[in-house]
């Protein structure tokens, strides 16, 4: 992957403790899966930033290569990839997500 794109991605990932690469925005998700993630993080009362991959094809493809994860949305906590819609739903339902985020955000 082009080092400039990689640097852009790493800057974005580290621009907020919780960073979501999604289709659309918090207020206007453009895809059901992206919306799932926004609703879950909202329901946990957590602040997070988002990046609309529909606005930037370089990031849209680059983020998939970066994490070796072929779908959007992608959620990063303190720079670590923690999953997409399916995994967040599963972790949310098991209570693991709240715990993992509280630990990560406290450190």
């Amino acid at each position: 992957m082009d080092s400039i794109i990689k640097a852009r991605i790493e800057t974005l990932i580290n621009s907020s403790p919780i960073m979501v690469f999604m289709k659309g925005t918090k207020l206007m998700p453009q895809c059901g899966f992206s919306n799932n993630v926004v609703q879950i993080l909202n329901s946990l009362g957590l602040s997070f930033e988002t990046f609309d991959v529909l606005s930037d094809m370089e990031i849209r493809q680059g983020i998939k290569d970066y994490s070796n994860w072929p779908t959007i949305p992608q959620v990063y906590v303190k720079g670590e990839f923690i999953g997409g819609s399916d995994i967040l739903i599963e972790m949310y339902n098991s209570g693991e997500l709240r715990e993992k985020l509280e630990i990560a955000l406290a450190s």
Partner: peptide, 27 residues
């Protein structure tokens, strides 16, 4: 879970890259 899903995504790499599969809910 990430590694588990990556195993399945690896098998569907072409279909996902070409977006022949547009949305995939995986368990």
């Amino acid at each position: 879970l990430i590694r588990q899903h990556q195993l399945v995504y690896e098998a569907l790499k072409t279909e996902l890259a070409s977006e022949a599969i547009h949305a995939l809910a995986l368990n």
